[in-house]
């Protein structure tokens, strides 16, 4: 079975779906890194919070009797984006802003502390158990048939991939065309200079966190739809993998983050499909180490020259 093209196609679809989720999270890492030069370790937890807000909204909608799927999805999407982005905003405001300009180690430890805090905050409020959810969208289109083996593209997978593409397009246009995008690029290059010419640096950084959190919340919702079960710990591994994706694509580069996410998703799917499921997380980690050794600037990143 493993030798057929159908099987390959199946893994490809899985990989693309997974990769879309990782890519959306990775953008948050890469944007924050670009603008303030730190790894936001708590970003994985923001993704997890997005997933939790999604499941809570689904449950409330179920109780309220709103069962028409497109409407329900839209409401959940908006709720997740709004509430999660406030977490992203508060995170930056409370934990990171006061530490701008202090030693790197301090900022890193704050980020780790925030990650631990948010994880346990959700665990305490929502219990440590798995939270399963009935599938909301089922069915799909048959793509290929090979004997008894049917490869289908689930509607859900379709939605995930399409939604990711749409978000990416909107997002790229925003960075390229709007004032916010310009301010962001200015802050990336030289924060002091940007402030001098009238860019509101604080607000730009806040918005960066908000955008990152928004995309992560969408990824959280997709994760929930795709796997149908979440717990307070999902942000940890997903965070590491999305970070790997950002590094693989070249940290600081937005297309890089998306490309890296897709690659990590594909690698994970094919690794699980052809080797062993158990070690799929080890694969992602090995890639991280290999990239850091051989090409620290990633696939699309610019090599940074050490200034002495």
């Amino acid at each position: 079975m493993q030798n057929t093209f159908a099987y390959f196609l199946d893994q490809l679809i899985n990989g693309l779906t997974l990769g879309s989720i990782y890519g959306l999270i990775a953008i948050g890492y890469t944007m924050v890194y670009g603008i303030i030069g730190m790894i936001n370790f708590a970003h994985g937890e923001i993704f997890m919070i997005g997933a939790f807000i999604s499941i809570i909204t689904f449950l409330i909608l179920g109780l309220a009797g709103i069962t028409w799927v497109p409407l329900a999805l839209l409401i959940v999407l908006i709720a997740a984006m709004v509430f999660t982005s406030i977490y992203g905003w508060a995170l930056e405001r409370v934990a990171y802003r006061p530490l701008r300009g202090s030693p790197r180690l301090a900022a890193l430890i704050t980020a780790i502390g925030m990650s631990i805090f948010l994880q346990n905050y959700v665990q305490l409020l929502q219990s440590a158990r798995n939270k399963p959810m009935q599938p909301v969208i089922s069915g799909g289109v048959e793509v290929m048939r090979d004997g008894d083996y049917v490869v289908s593209l689930g509607f859900m997978q379709g939605i995930i991939i399409v939604l990711t593409i749409v978000l990416m397009v909107i997002f790229s246009l925003m960075i390229a065309r709007t004032t916010l995008g310009r301010a962001q690029r200015a802050c990336e290059q030289d924060r002091d200079m940007a402030a001098l010419i009238g860019v509101n640096v604080d607000r730009t950084i806040s918005l960066t966190f908000v955008i990152g959190a928004t995309l992560a919340s969408v990824a959280g919702m997709m994760f929930l739809l795709y796997y149908g079960v979440i717990d307070f710990f999902i942000g940890f591994l997903a965070g590491i993998k999305a970070f790997t994706a950002a590094v693989l694509g070249g940290i600081g580069s937005l297309p890089g983050a998306m490309l890296g996410g897709l690659l990590i998703g594909l690698i994970e799917a094919f690794w699980s499909g052809y080797f062993t499921v158990e070690y799929k997380d080890v694969a992602a980690f090995s890639i991280l180490v290999l990239v850091l050794i051989f090409r620290p600037s990633g696939l699309l990143g610019k090599p940074d020259i050490e200034k002495v």
Binding site: R104, L105, L108, L237, F285
Partner: peptide, 25 residues
């Protein structure tokens, strides 16, 4: 050996990943 020449935050995440990988293994 391979990762200590990297910047501090990369080292942090690599060690984080390493801890998890050891557990998985």
């Amino acid at each position: 050996f391979p990762v200590l020449r990297l910047r501090g935050d990369y080292l942090a995440i690599v060690t984080l990943g390493f801890g998890e990988m050891i557990r998985i293994i």
